[in-house]
Write a protein that binds this DNA or RNA. Sequence first.
DNA 1: GCGACTTGCTTGACACGGTGAACAAAACGG
DNA 2: CCGTTTTGTTCACCGTGTCAAGCAAGTCGC
Lengths: 371, 371
Amino acid sequence: MTDAMRAVFVELLVHGPLSRAEVARRLDLSPSALTKVAKPLLDAGYLREQSSDGQKGIGRPSQPLQVDASRSSFIGIKLTAEELFAVRVDLAATVHDRFSLPLPDHDVDTIVEQIAQAVRRLSEAGDVAGVGISLAGTATPGDPVVGNSPFLGWSHVALAKLVEDAVGVPTVLNNDVRALTAAQQWFGAGVGHSSFALVTVGAGIGCGLVVEDRVVTGRSGGTGLIGHLAIDDRGPLCELGHRGCARAFAASSAIRRSIATTLDRPELTFDDCLELARQGQPVARRVLDDAGRALGRVIATVANVIGPDLVILSGEAVHMYDVCADALQAALTRHTHWTSTPVRVTVKPFTFDEWARGAAVSALQHLLLHS
Amino acid sequence: MTDAMRAVFVELLVHGPLSRAEVARRLDLSPSALTKVAKPLLDAGYLREQSSDGQKGIGRPSQPLQVDASRSSFIGIKLTAEELFAVRVDLAATVHDRFSLPLPDHDVDTIVEQIAQAVRRLSEAGDVAGVGISLAGTATPGDPVVGNSPFLGWSHVALAKLVEDAVGVPTVLNNDVRALTAAQQWFGAGVGHSSFALVTVGAGIGCGLVVEDRVVTGRSGGTGLIGHLAIDDRGPLCELGHRGCARAFAASSAIRRSIATTLDRPELTFDDCLELARQGQPVARRVLDDAGRALGRVIATVANVIGPDLVILSGEAVHMYDVCADALQAALTRHTHWTSTPVRVTVKPFTFDEWARGAAVSALQHLLLHS
DNA sequence: GCGACTTGCTTGACACGGTGAACAAAACGG
DNA sequence: CCGTTTTGTTCACCGTGTCAAGCAAGTCGC
C-alpha cells in the first residue's frame, strides 16, 4: 500500500464515486498515476467501476470509481458504566448488526471478556478487519492504554492489547467524543469541511475538533472540555459545585431536575420536560431558554477560539434543539466576535448507535491511515 | 529543493546544530539520505559544518550541521493605524536593523509607497529574500489580498501583489497575532511543542494557536477572537458595549482608564497604574486582580477547548503579569476542567519589534515551506 | 454524417528521491 | 593494538510517480 493508494482509497471512500480524472485533480496527481494506482485496488476488489456516469457532457464520459463498502467490516464498541454497545459496520460506516451486553462490574478481565463475547457474536457473519472501542476518558488511537477513565475507575489499563490478544483482531481505542467526531469527519456533516467542531449534549456537554483535516488530540487526550465552561455565576449548581457552568444549564439531567423540582413533579422525564416547554409551560420554557442560551454561548466560545467552518450539534439530547433554537441562535449571535458572522450550526439527529459507530470509524481511520 | 531537503533545513534551523545522524533519526530518514541531502545545502552555503562537537562519548564524534543564518535576510513590517514598523532579520530571526515611518493617511497607494521606502532602506545592507507584512485584520499567507482591516478601513486590497510589484521581492501577508505565533513556533517558547497557544495582552487581547505543528487559520482568517469573551456580566463596559468582556477587564487601556477615573487622576499612564498596584494602592490592586482573573479565565477557556501543551503569554502589556500573577493563576486553576492539571503558562517579555519580527518569520516560513 | 474538438484513460520510457549494504573514519577501552 | 561503537560516505538499485504520446468515446458544428 503506497501513500498514493491510501489517499486515493480514502478520497473515494469519503467523497463517494469519482472519476479517475477527478481524483487525480483533487489529490494533485497525474492521470497516469491514477490508472496505475487504481489497478491493484480494482483487482483486489476494494474498488468497483461504475458502468456509466449518466452525466452528459463534452468529451469522453468518465467511468467513476467507487469503494466496495462490503469488502470489509469493522466492529465498534462503546463502553458505559452499565452497558456495552457494539455495532458491526462496513467500509462506508453503515451499521449492519448490533449487540449489547450488561457490564456486571468494572473489573478489567470481566470487561475484556464481555468485549470479546460481543466481537465473537458480531464476527459470525464474516471476518472483521478491526475493532474500535470508545469510552469517556483519556484514550487515543495509537496508544493501546486507557490513560484514565473516571466512570470505570481505571487508569493505565492496556485495554487494546488485552482485547487484541483475546480476539485476534487489531484494536484501537479512542475517547468517545473524538470517535464521534471522526465519524462526522468521514461520513457525516463534516465531509467537505477541513475544520469543524462537534458539540454534544446529553448527560454532559462535550466537544470534538477537526482542524485542517485532522482530529485534534489535546495534551493527555483532553480536548473540548467545555462542560464546565462558566456561563453565569448566579446560575444553578453542577455536581462539582460550580455555579452556572454549561452543564448545570444544558445537560439533560440538569434540565430535567430543574423543572421537576420547581414544579414538584419528580416523575417527569426529560422528554416530558421538552413537551411542557413546547406547550409553553412557563417554568419549562424558562429552563429551556436558559439551556439554549448556555449552548449558544458554548458554541460561540468554541467558534471564536478556533474559527471552524461549521459546528455540528449532536448527542443524546440534541432533540431539545427545536425547543430552544431561538435562545441558542440569539446567544450565538450575541457572543460571536463582532468581526465575524455567526458560525453555521447543523443539527445531527442522534441514535445511541452513533457512539459505537464512531468507535468503528475511529478504528477504520486509524488502521487505514497508520499501517 | 526536495521535500527532504526542506525538512532537513527546517529541522536544523529550528532545533539548532544537530548531527546528520540525529537529524536522520528525527525525520525518519536513512543516514545515507542525509549525506546526499546535506551536500548541496553545504555547497550552496546554507549549512555549515561545525568543527567538533566537544561532547565526549563512545563512537565517532559527530560533525553537527548548522544553518548559516547570515545566508539570507527577510524584512518584516507591522502596520498600525499611525505608523509602520520594519525590521530586517536573518534566517535565525535575529533582528539586524529596524526602521519606522509614519503613515500620513490610509490610502492604499500611500501605504504601499511607505512600505516600499522601508524595504529599500533596509535592503541597502544586502539582498532580501522576502517581505512579510502583518496587520490586525484578516490576512493569511498564501493569499495576496487583505480581506478586511477595520483600523485601516480596507477590504479586499491586493497588498502583497502591489508591494511585490513595487519592490520586486516575494511578499507574504499575515494577521499580526498569527505572525507572532509563527515566530514563537520556530524561534521562541513554542519550539519543541507541537501544540500551544499564544495569548497576547495589550491594546486588545488576542490568541494564536498551533495545533499539531501547524499554525491554525480559522474560517476567513479568524482564530483566537477571545477579546470579547464574556467574563462577568456585571463588569465594566467595553467600547462595543459588552459588559464584562475580557478586554474590558484586561486590556491595558481599560485598566488605565478604570484606575485613572476612579482615582480622578487622568494623568496616570498604564505603567503608573502598575506601579500603584505594586505599592498596594487598593483601587489599582483591585483592578489588576480583576484583570488577572479575567486573563486566567481566558487562558483556561482556551486550554479547555484545545488542550495545548503550553500557553505563552505575551503582548505589549505582558509586564503586568508580575502584578497580577496570583489572581491569574488562581483563576486558571479554578476554571481548568477538573480532569486536567492547569496548563503551563510561560511569560514572554515583549518589545515592539516583536510584531515586525513575527511578520518576517511568517514570510520566512511561508517561502520556505510553500515554494 | 463526417470531421473537429474535448475530455478521459492507458501505455511505456524515464527521472529521481530515497534505501540498503558495505565500508571508511574517528573516537574509546581494555 | 585490536575490538567496539557510532558517524558518515559511496554506490548499486528499486519503486513511485511524471511526461509524452496515443487511443477511446462522447458532443458540436457544418
